[in-house]
Each structure stands twice: as C-alpha cells, then as structure tokens.
C-alpha cells in the first residue's frame, strides 16, 4: 500500500478484559513517514490498540514488533518509550505545577535513570532543542508560565511537543483535536503533517473531516478487528464500512462521507 518500510507490525494480537476481547487477532502495520488514522465506532478497540502498543494494556496472545527487532509485548512502559514510541493521551496531562519549559525539559530524550538525572545540567544543546520545540508549537512567549495556566489547545500542543521531545520513531495520538476550535484544529493538523516527515504518526480520531484532510492511510476497526484499510476515499466508498456506521448511527452516513 505504501512504499515506506514498516515501523510497527502486529501479528494476531488479542487483548482481553475479563473475557471480553477488545482486540481480536488483529494484524496491523504502521509504515514510516505516514500519518495513519484509526477510526471506527465506539468500542471498536481503537484506544486499546494504542494501549497495547505503548504497554498500558497487555496482549494475551500475538506479537508486536517495532523497528523489526523489538518485541513490545514483554517490555515495561518506560522501556518502550526508550525504544522510540511515545504516546499522547486523550485528556491533556501536562504537569500543571511545572512551567512549559520545565515540562519539555523532563520530557526531553535523555537517559532517564536516577543517576543521570541527579547529574543532569542543562546544556547549551539541550536548551537549543527546547527553544526550537517551543518555536515549533508556537509557545515561545509562554515559556515560563505554569503549564496549568495554558488554554486547552495550548496544553494539547505542549503535550504533543513533550511526545516529540523524546524523538520517537512512532507517535501515538489519542483524539488530539478533541475540544479544539476550528483554528486550533488547522494548526494541529499542520503540526501533524510536519512531524510525520520524519516519523510515523498513529492517530485515533472521531472527526472525519480532520481524518479526510490529513490522512495518508486510514484503518477502520470494528469489534476488535480490522474492517478495512486504505485511503480515505476508498474507506468512504467501501460498503462494509458504510454498513457498520449506518447500523450504529443515524447520521453516520454524513459523518463517513464527510458532507
């Protein structure tokens, strides 16, 4: 489908919550330099998919390989981060009592063992990296404000920046534009396009207009399985997808076709 090599590959993963299969034998692949959206009705297993990739949930069966060599299923959350996968959660969870700058400082890619943190001193290089990132997300003037005092949209960007500071190969975003204004959405979309030039971005999203505008690849999930995968145009034409959405929501047709 895409000429880019795979960064993440799952084989027949199953995630169970007390007998209920949130994800059922899913085969799934994310390629480099791709904005990859996952959509599907509620309970399709989208967020669980992100959870199992970043270690927040455990697969009962199957394997997930990252960069062709790392098996994620057995790694702890912090190990997975150091391999190059960072996740942004749905609700903004920036550290309200730290400044914007300090939030980025602790998020930054560095050895995060106690020993190296004890010795850590802000180097010129690090400071430059932080300044560049502030520039990218447009929060330079908010640098010394406490993150708790930011507007909702700014918190979301800060959090995306925190994810990026770890220089990941794969970024996981869970509904990044929820609660954003039209302008903020556009800015976020541009940010995502920009960051996907160097890495894969996997996004769970409900807003079909947003998916249509920025997706390279769209995966439709249904009841823990992959229903369809392709470009947004193909997705909109696919009869199976239409059926799933129509069967669940009255205005789903409008949502899927983006009219």
């Amino acid at each position: 489908m895409s000429k880019n090599p795979a960064v993440l590959r799952s084989k027949k993963i199953t995630v169970e919550f007390s007998g209920f299969k949130a994800i059922n034998e899913l085969d799934f692949q994310v390629n480099r330099n791709t904005v990859h959206f996952v959509i599907g009705p509620n309970g399709a297993g989208k967020t669980t998919l992100l959870d199992v990739i970043c270690g927040n949930a455990r697969a009962s069966k199957g394997s997930i390989t990252f960069n062709e060599k790392y098996e994620l299923a057995k790694m702890s959350e912090n190990e997975i981060v150091h391999r190059g996968i960072s996740r942004k959660f749905q609700a903004p969870s920036v550290f309200a009592h730290l400044t914007v700058f300090e939030n980025l400082e602790i998020a930054m890619k560095q050895k995060k063992t106690l020993r190296s943190i004890l010795r850590a001193k802000m180097t010129k290089e690090e400071e430059q990296k932080l300044t560049d990132m502030l520039d990218l997300i447009g929060l330079t003037s908010e640098k010394d404000k406490s993150a708790g005092s930011l507007a909702h949209g700014q918190k979301q960007w800060l959090e995306i920046a925190m994810v990026l500071m770890q220089e990941p190969d794969l970024v996981l975003l869970d509904e990044p534009i929820a609660g954003m204004s039209k302008q903020e959405r556009i800015k976020t979309g541009e940010l995502i396009t920009k960051i996907a030039k160097e890495r894969a971005v996997l996004i769970v999203e409900h807003d079909m207009d947003f998916v249509k505008d920025y997706a390279d690849v769209v995966t439709v999930m249904h009841e823990g399985q992959l229903l369809f995968e392709g470009s947004m145009e193909d997705v909109q034409k696919d009869p199976k997808v239409r059926e799933v959405y129509l069967g669940r929501k009255v205005d789903a047709d409008a949502e899927v076709t983006g009219t």
């Binding site: 970043c54 927040n56 702890s76 959350e77 912090n78 981060v81 150091h82 960072s86 996740r87 959660f89 969870s93 550290f95 309200a96 009592h97 602790i106 998020a107 995060k112 063992t113 925190m162 770890q166």
Partner: peptide, 12 residues
C-alpha cells in the same frame, strides 16, 4: 502529579 504519565515519558 502524574506518576503514570512519567512512565510514558520513559521514567521508572
């Protein structure tokens, strides 16, 4: 303030 969040920033 966010122990779990720190895990996903790569801290133990």
């Amino acid at each position: 303030d966010g122990e779990n969040r720190m895990r996903f920033l790569g801290y133990n």
